[in-house]
Write a protein that binds this DNA or RNA. Structure first.
Lengths: 166, 166
DNA sequence: CACAACTTGATTGCGCACAACTGAATCGGT
DNA sequence: ACCGATTCAGTTGTGCGCAATCAAGTTGTG
């Protein structure tokens, strides 16, 4: 679909960054529908995924896994706790850390969430190979960007070792 | 990097949807830094892109271009107006529609924004070909998802015409 | 022990996103 | 001309994201 020719830099720019932004919101919207019956939002669902997979974890670890800080997680966990899905308690060995753990209701919800993934993959309209390729590209972008915040007028921006050109 | 084997559905699920989510936030963070000197947020920058490209447009058209509704755009435009970058006025021919237009300061800012795109593309660590491929995949996802909200227990979810399988 | 540096989570404030609603203006059919 | 349905922007309320700040707890050093 993208015809191109590097024409207006600002228009071309809108393309890739906006494509990610629009896709992200579209996916979130899809989850909004699927998660409505569970009473979860998409970020809440992500937290539940981590808890289902790892069991009780410190808030810090949740933040590392999801790239979120306490300013986001604290109220989110409060809501999950109010919903009876999660409990929080301070560690005995280190009073600074708070462990988030699943309640019975929280654990039980896993079963109901299990059919969501395939519904999502289906709705994206992507095949296995495409999904895999997309995932790999996105991971490269994310790791490139979260590697560091280049100081200022910084990096000479030499395009990274690249095979071909248009 | 993704080793795989369809193992835990919930874990595999976290992968693609979360990859988009994480990448989107990483990109927004990059823009946050780049746009700080212009005093713009990323969504505000997107609005400016549309105005730089199309000139005065109704709020409705902005919403269609960015997939945003008036609940997001009204306060955003108010802030751009307060910053002296944008003006709003009701159409003469149809009093319902409000046209957003650039002020002199708003138009002038375009020049300063012109070098942002290449900085972003560089920071993603992607080459031209990869960026193009990523863009195409994201467009497919976005259009598949925004096509419609499948009613309920709906679609039999047959993977769309696909070439190969693992 | 004393004390500074660090870690961890919570809080505050602001700006999106989005659903739901309001109210004004327009359009369609009669 | 009238009246119901529709369109458009705005407002309200909830829930993220993230910067900045804070307080409590821990660790390292003398």
């Amino acid at each position: 679909m993208p015809d191109d020719q590097p024409r207006d830099p600002l228009s071309l720019d809108a393309q890739l960054c906006f494509a990610v932004y629009a896709a992200s919101r579209a996916i979130t919207g899809l989850y909004r529908d699927l998660l409505a019956e569970l009473g979860l939002t998409y970020p809440q669902y992500l937290v539940m995924l981590v808890l289902w997979e790892r069991g009780p974890v410190p808030v810090k670890e949740l933040g590392a896994a999801l790239h979120l800080d306490s300013g986001t997680l604290s109220p989110l966990l409060r809501r999950l706790e109010a919903a009876g899905l999660v409990s929080r308690e301070r560690s005995g060995s280190d009073e600074r850390v708070v462990h988030a753990a699943l309640t019975g209701r929280g654990s039980a919800m896993r079963e109901r969430a299990e059919r969501i993934p395939e519904q999502v993959l289906c709705a994206t309209g992507l095949g296995t190979a495409d999904a895999r390729a997309l995932h790999a590209l996105l991971d490269r972008v994310t790791s490139s960007l979260s590697a560091d915040a280049p100081p200022e007028g910084a990096s000479a921006c030499q395009p990274p070792p690249q095979e071909d050109r248009a």
